[in-house]
């Protein structure tokens, strides 16, 4: 069914390379945006672990809270409030850390790659000065810094001669490379990549993904890759988390998710990938209905209204996260009553 994607998917590497040392641990995180009518719950009880050296895809529709999660980790959330939960990065609790210390962590420890579609770079500043400002914020400037910039430019195939140019003089793809270079120049341990290739055309996107993949390996980066594009997920990630209405509905090994998606929402997402070879799937399919209103959400399964498997139980209780076991041993969690031993029998007739 998903062979077209899997054919391009990289083979899952031996699991023990990853999944032993956690770099980032999020526990029961709740983030809300206070609005006039109450609170919009952008992140609803999210628990997530990022292991050193892995690329975790965070997939979801627009407005599901994936970008909010990225900004929350960096503590740059505008207008949002962390109601409860814990974000621990390298045993530092980011929720309680003072802003002054957090600012020092941003850049050399954890950073974010932005989508370079609109003003990701200061329009009145030369590209070189972006690098200089970034480096000078965290390190003393010396000859090595200069070497570092040149090396990275070379690595990302940005011509050195263009350092004196202003951002508006670059193409979208080139701007995106500069954005990536500006993030990498500080050698961050954790990178949150928020749809970095979405605004680019497919060829530029493919080349950039290729470079990104190589760099992730070379620099031993841990990446939280936020996207809505399952093709990119198959291309670049080791594990995937499926986010919906502020919750993580399923998380597991990328290959397993594409082959054996457990959650009905994940299955529907994968079904929705068009396939030009398959006559039946040439038409774009979609999931009927729309995501629930996040203002004061009811305590039921958030996908129940759109789920083709839903039973009464789904409309009366909130499902808990359940561990599934697959033979490759990677932890796989899903929030659905179908896999709950106590309620599974209710779905037998389907």
């Amino acid at each position: 069914m998903t062979s077209s994607i899997l054919s391009s998917a990289r083979k899952t590497q031996s699991n023990d390379r990853y999944y032993n040392k956690a770099l980032l641990e999020i526990k029961n995180l709740i983030v809300e945006y206070p609005v006039k009518e109450g609170n919009v719950r952008a992140i609803d009880d999210v628990s997530l672990t990022l292991y050193r050296g892995e690329v975790l895809g965070l997939v979801g529709e627009s407005g599901c809270g994936k970008s909010s999660l990225g900004f929350t980790i960096l503590k740059l959330l505008k207008g949002g409030v962390i109601r409860s939960g814990e974000i621990s990065f390298n045993d530092i609790n980011l929720v309680t850390i003072p802003e002054g210390e957090m600012q020092l962590l941003r850049g050399p420890e954890l950073s974010m790659i932005f989508q370079a579609s609109q003003n990701a770079l200061n329009p009145l500043q030369k590209v070189l000065n972006h690098f200089i400002d970034t480096l000078k914020t965290h390190y003393r400037w010396n000859d090595e810094s200069w070497q570092k910039i040149l090396e990275l430019l070379n690595r990302l195939e940005i011509p050195e001669s263009r350092l004196e140019d202003y951002p508006f003089q670059f193409s979208g793809g080139m701007q995106q490379r500069i954005v990536i270079a500006l993030t990498l120049i500080l050698n961050p341990k954790l990178i949150i990549a928020d749809e970095p290739t979405t605004a680019l055309d497919v060829l530029v996107q493919a080349r950039l993904l290729e470079i990104l993949k190589e760099i992730i390996k070379e620099y031993d980066l841990t990446v939280l890759y936020i996207t809505h594009d399952l093709g990119i997920v198959a291309e670049i990630t080791n594990r995937v988390a499926i986010m919906y209405a502020g919750q993580i509905l399923e998380i597991g090994d990328t290959q397993t998710i594409f082959q054996n998606a457990a959650h009905p929402y994940t299955r529907a997402l994968i079904e929705a990938i068009p396939n030009v070879k398959d006559e039946e799937k040439k038409l774009l399919s979609f999931i009927p209905g729309h995501p629930p209103d996040l203002r004061n959400p009811p305590l039921i399964c958030c996908f129940a209204d759109r789920c083709s498997y839903s039973q009464d139980i789904c409309h009366s209780k909130k499902p808990q996260s359940i561990n599934l076991n697959f033979e490759n041993g990677v932890q796989h969690k899903v929030k659905c009553f179908i896999y709950d031993d106590r309620y599974g029998h209710l779905f037998d007739q389907k």
Binding site: R106, G107, S111, M112, N119, A120, P123, T134, T137
Partner: peptide, 12 residues
């Protein structure tokens, strides 16, 4: 604007 968020994300 994005460049402001991006600058903050680099610790500026």
């Amino acid at each position: 604007q994005e460049y402001v968020h991006f600058a903050r994300a680099r610790g500026i």
